[in-house]
């Protein structure tokens, strides 16, 4: 028996909206500790990793580990029927479920929707991602980072990110010209201005902006984002989800051979 009730169902809607341009189908693994999901884009350049802890749910029960193969497109169609203020419950009684039940309830419990989504059997090709001690970590406003990526992608498809003790520089070079945006450490008490740099080792890495713009669809999940980098390593972009878990994106760099 598996049942997970999320008080703020809108969080689940936002997660699916954030990943639906990146991955087509995912395996959600449910265990006693919560839900986890890892999936790569078709080019194996980017990866999304979701972890939702059981104690972040209003109710959570998972008698034995199960894997739920979902089509993101079909999941989106079902979630469109959930109101932003609804609770969302996922449920199945079977051990090898062929479908997953969804219940959407409004605050007054005066409207209850029930859907059943057919499940897919997907081969679980998952990457072993070691816990990395990143040498450059940047915490900043997710809206600000999203804006920087959007603005620079009108000049080039590629951005170079260079960190130093006191600032991070986003540089682009394209047919029309070049540009850079330098953001300095800023302990402002205003969220949108605060920038926190932890630079043990400076890095200079190059990434495709179209992936960063896809990752930034997760801005509605968290007002801050962290950029985690080490030389010659994929970038890890993390959106923490209050009291529930985190949504992480990994992006392989572009490297001159």
């Amino acid at each position: 028996m598996f049942e997970a009730k999320l008080q703020q169902g809108v969080i689940f809607k936002k997660i699916v909206d954030a990943i639906k341009d990146l991955v087509k189908s995912v395996n959600i693994d449910a265990s006693t500790s919560g839900l986890s999901m890892q999936a790569m884009d078709s080019a194996h350049v980017a990866l999304v990793s979701l972890k939702l802890n059981e104690n972040g749910f209003k109710d959570y029960r998972c008698d034995r580990p199960i894997t739920l193969g979902l089509s993101i497109e079909n999941l989106s169609k079902i979630l469109k029927c959930a109101g932003n203020d609804d609770t969302i419950t996922l449920q199945t009684d079977e051990e090898e479920p062929s479908s997953l039940k969804f219940f959407f309830e409004n605050q007054q419990a005066s409207k209850i929707s029930e859907f059943s989504l057919n499940l897919m059997s997907l081969d679980s090709e998952s990457l072993g991602i070691p816990d990395t001690d990143y040498s450059s970590v940047i915490q900043m406003s997710s809206a600000e980072f999203s804006r920087i990526c959007k603005e620079l992608s009108s000049i080039s498809e590629t951005v170079e990110i260079e960190t130093s003790k006191e600032s991070v520089k986003f540089s682009v070079q394209g047919d029309i010209g070049a540009g850079s945006i330098t953001v300095k450490n800023n302990q402002s008490d205003k969220d949108v201005d605060r920038v926190d740099l932890q630079i043990d080792q400076p890095v200079k890495l190059t990434f495709a902006l179209r992936y960063l713009n896809m990752f930034n669809k997760a801005v509605s999940l968290s007002s801050t984002v962290s950029l985690n980098m080490s030389e010659e390593n994929p970038l890890m972009v993390e959106y923490k989800i209050d009291d529930l878990g985190s949504l992480r994106f990994y992006l392989a760099p572009k490297i001159s051979d």
């Binding site: 350049v45 990457l127 495709a208 990994y250 572009k254």
Partner: peptide, 14 residues
């Protein structure tokens, strides 16, 4: 010209 790498250059399939 920089080449886009793939994640399996950095991480092993588990």
């Amino acid at each position: 010209q920089k080449q886009q790498k793939r994640l399996n250059t950095f991480y092993e399939f588990s």
